[in-house]
Design a protein around this nucleic acid. Structure first.
Lengths: 147, 147
DNA sequence: TTACTTGTAATGTGTTATATTACAACCATA
DNA sequence: TATGGTTGTAATATAACACATTACAAGTAA
């Protein structure tokens, strides 16, 4: 089971805003064109990124902009904004272990801590990666192709 | 989006086999009772665990047993056996970034490496945890309750 | 006022996880 | 060897979910 494409879409969106906000009016349709994703989906992700304080969007007014410098946005910020499993946890536990079985009764106790440990390791790695890293790579590639 | 319950089911199964293989004939129905999961699903997971060389199952013959000491089975072994994203990767990438857009054209190049890095961090943590750790906790709880 | 944009509800479609029924293949033992 | 129990698996149902799409209200800027 994979992590939703909303995450890569969101990273793509932020990179787009960064690269184009000075030269174009960045709109949901513009982004839909770059990502190949339906504009309504894009607007949904934009709302989540806005709620997380990462971008500025205003109803009616075109021109989406960044709310923070790229160096201050990590993969974790984006992940948390669009694909968070805060309520549920990364791992889906089978719902009905048998409380009358010694193993079924105690399996949650034995597992929960360790599942959380794995989730934390993943989230820590997400925190290491900044959106500025991604944008730098994209722009380096663009420059390289100009020649 | 979460990791399938097949993973926690599989860990539960292995713990069950370990705890009960000396005293009971462990069957798919027995495990279904402990996990609260349908026997057919259990048999599917059992097949995957068998294919991964973690357990012994023989058609017709009851009595499922472990193929390795618990100390030599990690969360990663189980994860790989039942819920692997080997072909796809942990992150689902949006399918149609626009090759005519400078960002759309290069977003894969800029992201793939980092997504793999996050996936690797998670898998490394899975490798740190042994099934014997889980079984020890379960059995300690059982002992504690006897008193 | 007009043209454009965001926000969002409603609906459709395809995919996937799990449950369930049914049955063939197989094994162990009386 | 006949029988009862077990695994393997196909077929089907159901629910949840991701994403696409249409439609339109609400808002903005010229």
């Amino acid at each position: 089971m994979q992590i939703t494409s909303r995450f890569t879409i969101a990273v793509h969106i932020i990179t787009c805003i960064h690269c184009f906000q000075d030269d174009y009016k960045v709109t949901s349709n513009f982004i839909a064109g770059s990502t190949g994703v339906n504009p309504v989906i894009i607007r949904g992700v934009l709302s989540q990124l806005k709620a997380a304080g990462l971008i500025h969007v205003r109803q009616g007014a075109s021109g989406i902009t960044l709310a923070k410098p790229l160096e201050e946005i990590t993969f974790f910020d984006v992940y948390e904004a669009v694909d968070s499993v805060k309520d549920e946890g990364l791992f889906h536990f089978h719902e009905n272990p048998n409380p009358d079985c010694p193993v079924g009764k105690n399996i949650h106790f034995a597992l929960d801590r360790r599942l959380a440990q794995v989730q934390t390791a993943m989230e820590q790695e997400l925190r290491q990666i900044r959106l500025s890293d991604v944008a730098a790579d994209v722009q380096a590639k663009i420059e390289a192709e100009k020649k």
